[in-house]
Amino acid sequence: MVTETFPGRFESLAGIREFVFQAASDAGFDEKEIYAVELAVDEACANIIEHAYGGEDVGEIECTCNDLKDGLEIIIKDGGEPFDPGEVVPPDFSVALEDVTPRGAGLFLIRNMMDDVDFVFSKEDGNVLRMVKRKKE
């Protein structure tokens, strides 16, 4: 298991992706699966900075990668405002171009790129996002 803490700013995203890229490579995922993990983690961390912290340099992001036997577990913690995924309206891209809004696209991508996605908030740990990418049988 490896853990690294990053400053909560957009400039950190490249380093966070590199961190999970390494873990996903080491776990034996193929290129397409690694991209899915990178994208899910990038979207999650961008959401943390933008919504949970409400801006850059407000708090840190702790990222843990754990190679399970059947997959890669990624745990992302932040100390921002509690996040309730139930409040996020799914994006609607069936509407006309001028009516498209970006809200919810990040969460939609996260849910589709990863196999398990759980958000938990506690006063002790703050927001904890646990995601798992399963290995192909």
Partner: peptide, 15 residues
Amino acid sequence: FMSSKGWWVLIETQK
């Protein structure tokens, strides 16, 4: 690599 933030820039430009 392109995150949803990038797609949103393209959507706004397309509009």
